[in-house]
């Protein structure tokens, strides 16, 4: 990988981290309401995977999807406006934090029912296959989704019908407050894929280069074999499940251990020590990111609130569109 690509990965992780930090701040200032699920700690996964995704590709994500939306090309401005519930939001203010969408960017949400995006991603991939379109389909979900029946239904059909797509399981060890060991009799998640004859691999989700390398391999497999593939990313969220979560179910010491593996700290130190990036350039990068995010907040603040007279719009799409 060339140096520019590494800097690009670092930059995207920093963009996600900064956006999420500001979201938390804006939440406490009551600018953002509802549920807010932050991705802090998990940045390497979306950053690495989506660095290999093109604009024509399909991406399906969960309610913890700000990073995925941003990295699929939705602007920070329209994401922030969505969180503010304004008309310029990427879902027109109808969706909020958990329902970011973009038809143009082929970002399909934003699913707040755990695992509900999984069969839909299989369907998107099936459509691409049938229409002979050369687009990849990437489906993100947490390890909590593995407890849902529809996960098994979807993997079975994807494998049975040889539908090429990439399943990306972001295993952050906790489904809200219930640890994996307390919810699954079989905690080796690879086996959840291989029982359906889907090849799978575990990835250190705190190491962005490993994420890129293994995702690349997985995408090559999918393209050559015309079959699904499953990646389990071992990762950890540094923040509680949502802004309402008092975080009573895990030890502080556990969090501290994982923080030592912060995907951003480790990667930036490595780029600094190998002189791929200088202290000055890193500083400038952070300024650039700060500007992007502050502009997004200003944009969101200025964006209009939709008139309540428009309330019943968008329930149905008019025929002919």
């Amino acid at each position: 990988m060339i140096d520019e690509e590494k800097i690009f990965l670092l930059k995207n992780m920093l963009r996600v981290r900064r956006m999420e930090e500001l979201c938390a701040e804006l939440y406490t200032r009551e600018k953002i309401r509802g549920f807010l699920h932050l991705y802090i700690g998990e940045e390497a996964v979306a950053t690495g995977v989506l660095s290999l995704v093109d604009p024509v590709d399909n991406v399906m994500a969960t309610y913890r999807e700000h990073a995925h939306a941003l990295l699929k090309g939705i602007s920070a401005k329209s994401i922030m406006a969505e969180m503010f519930g304004r008309v310029d939001g990427c879902s027109g203010g109808r969706g909020g934090s958990m329902h970011l969408y973009s038809r143009e960017k082929r970002f399909f949400g934003g699913n707040a029912i755990v695992a509900s995006g999984i069969p839909q991603a299989v369907g998107l991939a099936l459509a691409a296959q049938r229409l002979r379109e050369s687009r990849k389909t990437i489906c993100f979900f947490g390890e909590g989704a593995i407890a849902e029946g529809v996960f098994y239904e979807s993997l079975n059909m994807a494998s049975l019908w040889k539908i090429p797509l990439l399943f990306c399981c972001e295993n952050n060890l906790y489904a809200m407050g219930t640890g994996l060991v307390r919810s699954q009799a079989q905690t080796d998640l690879i086996k959840k894929a291989t029982i359906h004859n889907i090849s799978a691999e575990t990835v250190n989700g705190m190491d962005v280069l490993e994420v890129v390398a293994k995702t690349k391999k997985a995408l090559e497999y999918i393209s050559n074999e015309k079959k699904p593939y499953f990646l389990e990313f071992k990762t950890y969220r540094f923040r509680p499940h949502s802004m309402f979560d008092p975080d009573l179910y895990r030890e502080k010491s556990e969090l501290e251990v994982w923080k030592k593996h912060c995907p951003i700290d480790s990667f930036s130190s490595s780029l600094l020590s190998t002189q791929i990036i200088s202290e000055d350039s890193l500083k400038n990068l952070k300024i650039e990111i700060e500007n992007e995010m502050q502009e997004a907040i200003v944009f969101a603040e200025k964006s209009l609130e939709e008139s309540v007279n428009e309330l019943e719009r968008h329930v149905y799409l008019q025929a002919g569109i």
Binding site: N58, P119, Q120, G123, L131, V150, S154, N156, M157
Partner: peptide
């Protein structure tokens, strides 16, 4: 390709149908 026998997975194949519709079918 046109007549797809699905396993007994109502939630799954309904979701797949929804995704396929989003994808242009």
């Amino acid at each position: 390709e046109k007549i797809l026998d699905a396993p007994l997975s109502e939630l799954g194949f309904t979701g797949i149908g929804i995704g396929a519709a989003l994808g242009g079918l």
